[in-house]
Protein backbone atom coordinates (compact mmCIF):
# COMPACT_ATOMS: atom_id res chain seq x y z
CA UNK A 1 0.00 0.00 0.00
CA UNK A 2 2.74 2.38 1.07
CA UNK A 3 4.77 1.92 -2.09
CA UNK A 4 1.64 2.24 -4.19
CA UNK A 5 0.90 5.67 -2.75
CA UNK A 6 4.47 6.69 -3.26
CA UNK A 7 4.54 5.43 -6.83
CA UNK A 8 1.28 7.16 -7.70
CA UNK A 9 2.40 10.44 -6.19
CA UNK A 10 5.70 10.32 -8.02
CA UNK A 11 3.92 9.64 -11.27
CA UNK A 12 1.66 12.60 -10.56
CA UNK A 13 4.48 15.01 -9.67
CA UNK A 14 6.03 14.69 -13.11
CA UNK A 15 2.75 15.00 -15.02
CA UNK A 16 2.37 18.06 -17.21
CA UNK A 17 -0.40 20.45 -16.31
CA UNK A 18 -1.63 20.35 -19.89
CA UNK A 19 -2.65 16.69 -19.48
CA UNK A 20 -5.00 17.51 -16.69
CA UNK A 21 -6.27 20.87 -17.82
CA UNK A 22 -9.88 20.89 -18.82
CA UNK A 23 -9.72 21.13 -22.61
CA UNK A 24 -13.10 22.81 -22.74
CA UNK A 25 -11.78 26.31 -22.15
CA UNK A 26 -15.20 27.73 -22.98
CA UNK A 27 -16.55 26.06 -19.87
CA UNK A 28 -14.44 28.26 -17.65
CA UNK A 29 -16.07 31.20 -15.91
CA UNK A 30 -14.87 33.97 -18.18
CA UNK A 31 -15.58 37.67 -18.39
CA UNK A 32 -14.31 40.51 -20.53
CA UNK A 33 -12.88 43.46 -18.67
CA UNK A 34 -15.26 46.08 -20.04
CA UNK A 35 -18.50 44.24 -19.32
CA UNK A 36 -20.79 45.90 -16.76
CA UNK A 37 -20.08 44.85 -13.21
CA UNK A 38 -23.52 43.26 -12.83
CA UNK A 39 -22.34 40.37 -15.03
CA UNK A 40 -19.86 39.31 -12.37
CA UNK A 41 -22.55 39.13 -9.75
CA UNK A 42 -24.68 36.84 -11.90
CA UNK A 43 -21.71 34.69 -12.77
CA UNK A 44 -20.54 34.28 -9.19
CA UNK A 45 -23.94 33.11 -8.03
CA UNK A 46 -22.87 29.64 -9.16
CA UNK A 47 -19.10 30.01 -9.60
CA UNK A 48 -16.47 30.65 -6.97
CA UNK A 49 -14.42 32.79 -9.27
CA UNK A 50 -14.21 34.26 -12.75
CA UNK A 51 -11.20 34.90 -14.95
CA UNK A 52 -11.12 38.27 -16.65
CA UNK A 53 -9.68 38.61 -20.14
CA UNK A 54 -8.93 41.63 -22.25
CA UNK A 55 -11.44 40.42 -24.82
CA UNK A 56 -12.69 37.04 -25.96
CA UNK A 57 -10.80 37.48 -29.20
CA UNK A 58 -7.35 37.95 -27.69
CA UNK A 59 -7.97 35.87 -24.53
CA UNK A 60 -5.23 37.78 -22.74
CA UNK A 61 -5.64 37.23 -19.01
CA UNK A 62 -5.87 40.51 -17.08
CA UNK A 63 -7.49 39.65 -13.77
CA UNK A 64 -9.48 37.41 -11.48
CA UNK A 65 -12.55 38.00 -9.36
CA UNK A 66 -13.49 35.92 -6.36
CA UNK A 67 -16.56 36.21 -4.17
CA UNK A 68 -14.59 38.05 -1.52
CA UNK A 69 -13.82 40.76 -4.10
CA UNK A 70 -17.55 41.25 -4.49
CA UNK A 71 -17.95 41.51 -0.74
CA UNK A 72 -15.44 44.35 -0.83
CA UNK A 73 -17.29 45.97 -3.71
CA UNK A 74 -20.61 45.81 -1.85
CA UNK A 75 -19.48 46.99 1.60
CA UNK A 76 -21.17 50.11 2.95
CA UNK A 77 -18.64 52.80 2.08
CA UNK A 78 -18.60 54.32 5.55
CA UNK A 79 -17.03 51.10 6.76
CA UNK A 80 -13.87 51.77 4.73
CA UNK A 81 -11.00 53.26 6.66
CA UNK A 82 -8.68 55.91 5.34
CA UNK A 83 -5.04 55.10 5.77
CA UNK A 84 -2.53 56.90 3.60
CA UNK A 85 -2.26 55.25 0.21
CA UNK A 86 -5.35 53.08 0.56
CA UNK A 87 -7.67 54.91 -1.78
CA UNK A 88 -7.70 51.93 -4.15
CA UNK A 89 -10.26 50.21 -1.92
CA UNK A 90 -12.66 53.06 -2.48
CA UNK A 91 -12.33 52.95 -6.22
CA UNK A 92 -13.33 49.27 -6.06
CA UNK A 93 -16.53 49.98 -4.16
CA UNK A 94 -19.54 49.96 -6.46
CA UNK A 95 -21.50 52.25 -4.12
CA UNK A 96 -18.89 54.92 -4.79
CA UNK A 97 -17.77 54.09 -8.32
CA UNK A 98 -20.25 55.21 -10.95
CA UNK A 99 -20.90 52.88 -13.93
CA UNK A 100 -18.48 50.27 -12.59
CA UNK A 101 -17.09 47.75 -15.02
CA UNK A 102 -15.76 44.26 -14.44
CA UNK A 103 -12.22 45.63 -14.42
CA UNK A 104 -13.02 47.96 -11.51
CA UNK A 105 -13.67 45.15 -9.05
CA UNK A 106 -11.14 42.60 -10.28
CA UNK A 107 -7.74 41.82 -8.82
CA UNK A 108 -5.17 42.46 -11.48
CA UNK A 109 -2.42 40.61 -9.65
CA UNK A 110 -3.02 37.04 -10.80
CA UNK A 111 -0.78 34.16 -9.85
CA UNK A 112 -0.57 32.02 -12.97
CA UNK A 113 0.79 28.66 -14.05
CA UNK A 114 2.67 28.34 -17.30
CA UNK A 115 1.63 25.74 -19.86
CA UNK A 116 4.04 22.83 -19.74
CA UNK A 117 4.67 23.14 -16.00
CA UNK A 118 4.59 19.87 -14.06
CA UNK A 119 2.13 19.14 -11.28
CA UNK A 120 4.75 19.32 -8.58
CA UNK A 121 5.37 22.97 -9.42
CA UNK A 122 1.63 23.59 -9.62
CA UNK A 123 1.01 22.05 -6.21
CA UNK A 124 3.83 23.99 -4.62
CA UNK A 125 2.45 27.18 -6.08
CA UNK A 126 -1.04 26.42 -4.81
CA UNK A 127 0.39 25.81 -1.36
CA UNK A 128 2.59 28.89 -1.38
CA UNK A 129 -0.15 31.30 -2.41
CA UNK A 130 -2.96 29.39 -0.71
CA UNK A 131 -4.95 29.08 -3.92
CA UNK A 132 -7.23 26.26 -5.01
CA UNK A 133 -7.18 27.20 -8.66
CA UNK A 134 -4.67 28.62 -11.09
CA UNK A 135 -5.12 29.90 -14.60
CA UNK A 136 -2.79 28.31 -17.14
CA UNK A 137 -1.29 30.78 -19.58
CA UNK A 138 1.24 30.67 -22.40
CA UNK A 139 4.34 32.86 -22.44
CA UNK A 140 2.38 35.82 -23.80
CA UNK A 141 -0.17 35.67 -21.03
CA UNK A 142 -2.89 34.14 -23.22
CA UNK A 143 -5.32 32.08 -21.16
CA UNK A 144 -5.15 28.40 -22.10
CA UNK A 145 -7.24 26.89 -19.34
CA UNK A 146 -7.38 26.40 -15.60
CA UNK A 147 -6.17 23.85 -13.13
CA UNK A 148 -8.01 23.35 -9.86
CA UNK A 149 -7.17 21.48 -6.70
CA UNK A 150 -10.31 19.45 -7.33
CA UNK A 151 -9.00 18.32 -10.71
CA UNK A 152 -5.69 17.39 -9.08
CA UNK A 153 -7.50 15.25 -6.53
CA UNK A 154 -9.69 13.62 -9.16
CA UNK A 155 -6.61 12.84 -11.18
CA UNK A 156 -4.83 11.41 -8.19
CA UNK A 157 -7.68 8.99 -7.47
CA UNK A 158 -7.77 7.95 -11.10
CA UNK A 159 -4.03 7.25 -11.10
CA UNK A 160 -4.39 5.38 -7.84
CA UNK A 161 -6.96 3.09 -9.38
CA UNK A 162 -4.76 2.49 -12.42
CA UNK A 163 -1.69 1.71 -10.36
CA UNK A 164 -3.70 -0.64 -8.20
Amino acid sequence: METRMKKTLEKMYSMKVDELMDPRAWDMPLLQKDEPVSHVFFMLRSNNHAWVVDSEKTMKLVGVIERVDLLRAMLPPDSLTYAYGSIKMHMKNIYIKKGAKVRDVMTSKVITAKGGANLKEIMLKMKKYELERLPVVDKNGILLGEVTLKSVIIHFTRLLRETG
Partner: peptide, 12 residues
Amino acid sequence: ARTMMDLGVLNT
Protein backbone atom coordinates in the same frame (compact mmCIF):
# COMPACT_ATOMS: atom_id res chain seq x y z
CA ALA B 1 -13.13 61.25 0.66
CA ARG B 2 -14.83 60.63 3.97
CA THR B 3 -16.72 63.94 3.98
CA MET B 4 -17.87 63.52 0.39
CA MET B 5 -18.96 60.02 1.39
CA ASP B 6 -21.01 61.34 4.28
CA LEU B 7 -22.56 63.99 2.06
CA GLY B 8 -23.33 61.31 -0.53
CA VAL B 9 -21.42 63.12 -3.27
CA LEU B 10 -18.37 60.91 -3.60
CA ASN B 11 -19.78 59.21 -6.69
CA THR B 12 -20.10 62.49 -8.60
